[in-house]
Amino acid sequence: MALSPLNQRRWRNFKANRRAYWSLILFSILYGISLCAELVANDKPLLVQFRGEWHAPFAQFYPETAFGGDFQTEAKYKDVEVRCLIMAAGSEACWDDPEGILAEATTQGTAAGEAIEQGRIIWAPVPYSFNTINDIGKAAPSAPDAQHWLGTDDTARDVLARVIYGFRLSVSFALIVTVLTSVIGIAAGAVQGYFGGITDLIFQRIIEIWGATPSLYVIIIVAAIFTMNFWILVFLMVLFGWTALVGVVRAEFLRARNFEYVRAARALGVPDRVIMFRHVLPNAMVATLTMLPFIITGTIGALTALDFLGFGLPSSAPSLGEMTQQAKQNLQAPWLAFTAFFTFAIMLSLLVFIFEGIRDAFDPRKTFQ
């Protein structure tokens, strides 16, 4: 579908801001990779070829018996016996000398002098998930090496895998909270500013009382009662964050409600909701978009702070705040601090640059040169 002339002008203005344009490309690549985290970092194979048939263990449960084993539990694909069963097509010799049979099946496709059908295992580029406890053979946290490019944390989990999953969690959390708080805040500010009078007065008193509520104490109380998860945190952040845009939108609507085009629309009988959201709101978007970078970066910072303090997501979750806490507790492992710092610096900088370009794109005073 072709863009309207107005949106074409906005897109040209956005592309004219080269920093914002390239930040959008880089951020889209990084976030796109994180959205496919199960294909990039996983301790289960992406594909397994066994006796001529293909399986996708990363997406489906397969018991060990599906590959010629004895147990109904999920196959442990990194065990040498299971790998031998897959590569040697379920050869019973795998129980006697799995390493030798695996080596022969890999190089020659034969086992114990008998012809066998060679299997295949395709792993993710990072063969660890965010919660994989690795047998590193030394004390954790361990420094970066060929197997763990960013090292491991104090429970021997791969740091790179946790960064990939943590990036997705933090950005998704921030985007969901920002969208929900923006919708509620813009609607509330529009009603206040457009109607004014007693409506504005009542809303202002409610916001003053709501804004005085100690949100951190409420979150601590909720964390003590319930097991905190992603959606509970989203609800709490929206509950206390929707007021961020109310003041800006209210001021813009108070300014625009007496403009000539608004009076003309009223005189023609145009419904209030149409005037508010089709005619007045677009003129208030520049001031609104100016606030969005602060909301989205503040949301990421709030999630990180809650995880750092222990009131956010469970410690098993791929949280960047939990990684920051580990960096504080393991000063002898500087790679944890460097990883957390550069992850936050890159993520927040890219988001600020992108929203800076979006703000300029919606500014009617700026034109493409």
Score class of each variant (00 low, 15 high):
residue 279 H to Y: 11
residue 245 L to V: 03
residue 280 V to Q: 00
residue 100 G to L: 13
residue 308 F to N: 00
residue 287 A to P: 05
residue 220 I to P: 06
residue 225 I to P: 08
residue 259 F to W: 13
residue 362 F to I: 00
residue 112 A to S: 11
residue 361 A to E: 04
residue 130 F to Q: 11
residue 17 N to G: 01
residue 295 I to C: 03
residue 218 V to G: 12
residue 244 A to G: 09
residue 368 F to R: 15
residue 140 A to P: 06
residue 24 L to I: 09
residue 69 G to A: 04
residue 174 A to T: 04
residue 323 M to E: 03
residue 329 Q to T: 09
residue 150 L to S: 03
residue 55 H to Q: 09
residue 71 F to K: 15
residue 358 I to Y: 07
residue 128 Y to N: 03
residue 191 V to Q: 08
residue 26 L to F: 14
residue 258 N to T: 15
residue 42 N to F: 04
residue 170 S to K: 02
residue 258 N to S: 14
residue 141 P to E: 03
residue 331 L to A: 15
residue 259 F to P: 03
residue 359 R to Y: 01
residue 58 F to V: 10
residue 149 W to F: 11
residue 189 G to F: 02
residue 209 I to H: 05
residue 104 E to A: 13
residue 352 V to H: 11
residue 303 L to K: 05
residue 211 G to P: 03
residue 29 I to E: 03
residue 174 A to M: 05
residue 357 G to I: 00
residue 260 E to T: 09
residue 89 A to C: 05
residue 146 A to F: 14
residue 45 P to V: 07
residue 287 A to S: 12
residue 39 L to A: 11
residue 168 R to M: 06
residue 270 V to R: 08
residue 149 W to R: 04
residue 269 G to A: 10
residue 302 A to V: 10
residue 121 I to S: 02
residue 328 K to I: 12
residue 192 Q to S: 15
